[in-house]
Amino acid sequence: MTEKLSNAQIAWRAAQDIADGAYVNLGIGFPEMVAKFQPPGRQAVFHTENGVLGFGEAPAAGTEDWDLINAGKKAITLKPGASFFHHADSFAMVRGGHLDVAILGAYQVAETGDLANWSTGPKGVPAVGGAMDLVHGAKRVAVITDHVTKDGQPKLLERCTLPLTGVGCVTRVYSSLAVIDIEQGRFVLREKLAALSFETLQSLTGARLNLDGAPADLIVPEL
């Protein structure tokens, strides 16, 4: 069993690449954790699909206002400078190229930048939400994910086998083992855990990992 980063540590690493003042959308669930780990002195402005820009942390239990929620239907608070707008304006921000970063979860990512994160197949009730819109328009679409599935299968592949959310949209993957860019239809390894050999990482990845100089060590704090 290889050592790997916790979800919080993956979120921490992704947060280090968000600039002060960036407009950011975090997918529901695990990606929401990125907001907790902004480096000191930097403040991103968080966008949520249901029409709020500039929201802050969750309120204390018992003080929720259910007219003030995020896309995950969780109660939020407002920061000074926040604004409200309707859904068409909200998605104009998304598709119109006004967001700097969108950070999403993934079932699978392909070396082409294709993303599958909305459906695990024909069973059950399909639900897509804003995922297919979010993968278009943000200047940078990044994924945070475990490097492999719960049963050890690669999530980074030559081609996705699950239904696609978007084609050629992802530019960087923060995984539990590595930081990998997607450039011209190839995975390019930027950082990996120091204790992990390139060969082991390659064996856990379903497509060729390319090098552009020696990869840096992926170093994150204990969280």
Binding site: H87, P126, G130
Partner: peptide
């Protein structure tokens, strides 16, 4: 069910 991406629905 007609499933529509949220931004497309809006």
């Amino acid at each position: 069910l007609e499933l529509v991406p949220q931004g497309t629905l809006a």
